[in-house]
């Protein structure tokens, strides 16, 4: 799981174009949105694209996405449980 979280962080860094950011800088349990990493609604849409392209997980409603993307830990758990590729 720790390895997967690191891969996921790298994927997020790439998808959101966080140039120069290291995976270690993203807290596993810290909030990705708002006060934490500081992501916003557009990032949430970018991560929906990431989920579909990398894991075959379709998220239709962005509000649903925000719950899944609460932290790296919640996101990783959701992917592990629902991934289609």
């Amino acid at each position: 799981m720790e390895d997967f979280k690191r891969i996921l962080k790298l994927q997020i860094i790439e998808a959101l174009n966080l140039q120069g950011m290291q995976p270690e800088e993203i807290d596993d349990n810290g909030p990705l949105f708002g006060e934490g990493l500081g992501l916003d609604s557009i990032d949430s849409l970018e991560m929906i694209v990431l989920m579909e392209r990398n894991y075959g997980i379709k998220i239709e409603d962005p509000r649903e996405g925000r719950k899944i993307f609460e932290s790296i830990t919640t996101m990783a758990a959701y992917i592990q449980a629902n991934r289609k590729k």
Partner: peptide, 10 residues
Amino acid sequence: EGTLNPSPFI
């Protein structure tokens, strides 16, 4: 025309 990244559009 599938799920696309919104940033370039914006």
